[in-house]
Amino acid sequence: MSHFEDQLRSALRRKQPPAGFEDRVMSRVGPRRSLTGWRWATAAIAASLMLSVGGYGYRQYQGYRAKQQLMLALEITGSKLALAERRIDQLSQRSFHE
């Protein structure tokens, strides 16, 4: 075993902290801040944002779908009015030739 390895092992050996170490560290860090409230607020904002975006998207989808349905309704109405017109034309042509 090399001398270097011995030095490394010695340096990395688990040591107990000196007495009062934890207290000194904690006194420097200061009182622990509670992050729970912030987390809840952030989550609530994110959720309401997601709901608003989702709601807006759904309204967009509904509006687009309503427009498509309206166009379909107008197409059907138009084609059936055209059918009525064709039938009237046929009848008037027939009565004209008779």
Binding site: G63, A66, L70, M71
Partner: peptide
């Protein structure tokens, strides 16, 4: 089957462009 009540028609109207002549007429 197409069922468009007043609310849906209003919704559809918002998606009709005032710039496109056909849609503006609708």
């Amino acid at each position: 089957e197409v069922n468009l009540d007043g609310n849906l028609l209003q919704m559809a109207a918002k998606f009709l462009s005032g710039q496109k002549p056909d849609e503006a007429k609708v």
